[in-house]
Design a protein around this nucleic acid. Structure first.
Lengths: 251, 251
DNA sequence: CCCCATTATGACGGATCGTCATTATTAGTC
DNA sequence: GACTAATAATGACGATCCGTCATAATGGGG
């Protein structure tokens, strides 16, 4: 009836649940490199079956279709990004420095999980999206909303502190939309286009950071980039806030 | 040996070539709605075959695989975008107004071909991209490069006319990258996320245009948005330059 | 009218997704 | 430990779909 696991008393029900989760993690661990390697078609359910010690039916007990596996892969990394955003927003500094800190988080996230974009790009295709469960779609939307919330929180702090003045007709979310467009578009272009090199942009990540700064200068978010070296802020945040994560990249 | 077609003398060779192109157009015309409807999987080669009066082998004489059809669909619309960009760049006005004109072209293009993003999103997936021919990839890259060229041309004009002053360390292409990121990211988000409505952004296209303005204000591209009503410029360009295209949207 | 090069055809092989009847395992009880 | 009922695992199979290729049809030139 009751057993012990890791010193905690558990009943059969709990154990089954735990085993279920452990196996789910194993499946995803095996599926991720397959997806990264060959995309949607590269993730082959038969091959996945033969590589794991579970039969196909068992895998289909966890995920009702291929798309469910892929969206779960996306959720895994999105949750890490959310955590990084939340950590960055706690950075001690001016409101604009805190925005820069979140930008730093976004950049390090992209470098830490370079394959994430491919997963998210696939998921956002309607033909894939439609096959995923409403439940998991909710989880993904939540992640997105909370990320937006972190950024808009800092925008509101900027307004409250007087660093930023928006016209009455402008909502903080509009600014979030701008930053989001810049980063989503920028990282997408970096990941999927070779035109950048051809037009002589050799440090795209740095250029993208400068473009953030230009946008923020455009709304007069103080202190302006002419007054503060935000490249230096990037370096500081990288080390002070994301030192651990950084090692993973350079290692 | 020689025949007449549309009043032009043609030999057998020419006729075959023309028939080939006509058939290619027919195939693409049939494939496009199939792809729009159901994405990569929705474009079904068997169904395509049964809907056209050609056999599968014949279709495979034109396109060596499914991916070739999809990239050709992408190229078709990309060429239209390039044409719209080139037309917009000819707008008579200040350099910044001409940039706004290109922004107008980009927005109208998205509204005119709302399905284009889905096609391009699919093509940019490595697993699809890898199966396309080097030749067609070149055509696509060329389109992209020429679009970039149009924009960077206007940026250089802005510098030449004194409307824009960039630091020595900043290249015109960096600004192009910024505008490109903003628009690519913005339209992608509009097309694939419902978070925008949830955070209260009801006119995303307008907001995106304002974000362009903020970015351009940030680099002090004169005249600033405080001096000129760029929403009005958008309206003017829409009517004066793209009147014909506009009818198609509203109709 | 005939011949051969060129093009069209669609049956087929191969790959892959997801199902489900069958088999195995496990929990709980005596 | 033996038995049973519920639960879970299995993998053969049906269905779908891509791309090929042996065969058939076409038509241009002599």
């Amino acid at each position: 009836m009751t057993i012990r696991h890791n010193g905690v008393v558990m009943n059969t029900r709990d154990r089954k649940h735990r085993e279920m989760q452990e196996r789910e993690a194993i499946i995803l661990e095996c599926a991720r490199p397959m997806f990264i390697e060959g995309g949607y078609n590269g993730l082959n359910m038969d091959r996945l079956t033969s590589m794991l010690e579970y039969s196909k039916g068992t895998i289909y007990n966890h995920f009702s279709c291929k798309e469910e596996i892929i969206i779960t892969l996306a959720i895994q990394t999105l949750e890490k990004r959310l955590a990084m955003f939340e950590k960055a927003a706690l950075f001690q500094g001016t409101s604009r420095e805190r925005i820069a800190a979140i930008g730093t988080a976004a950049e390090l996230f992209v470098k830490l999980y370079p394959d994430h974009f491919r997963v998210e790009q696939t998921i956002r295709l309607d033909s894939i999206w439609d096959k995923t469960s409403e439940e998991r779609r909710q989880v993904m939307s939540n992640c997105e909303r909370r990320c937006i919330g972190v950024v808009s929180g800092v925008v509101r702090d900027g307004i409250a502190s007087g660093d930023l003045n928006l016209k009455d007709t402008t909502s903080p979310e509009e600014i979030v939309f701008g930053l989001w467009s810049l980063s989503f578009g920028g990282y997408s272009i970096i990941a999927t286009s070779n035109s950048l090199q051809e037009i002589g942009i050799s440090e795209p990540f740095k250029m993208l950071r400068h473009n953030y700064s230009r946008f923020l200068d455009g709304i007069q978010w103080k202190p302006l980039s002419s007054e503060v070296d935000y490249d230096a802020v990037f370096e500081r945040v990288s080390e002070e806030v994301f030192g651990n994560e950084l090692q993973q990249i350079t290692a």
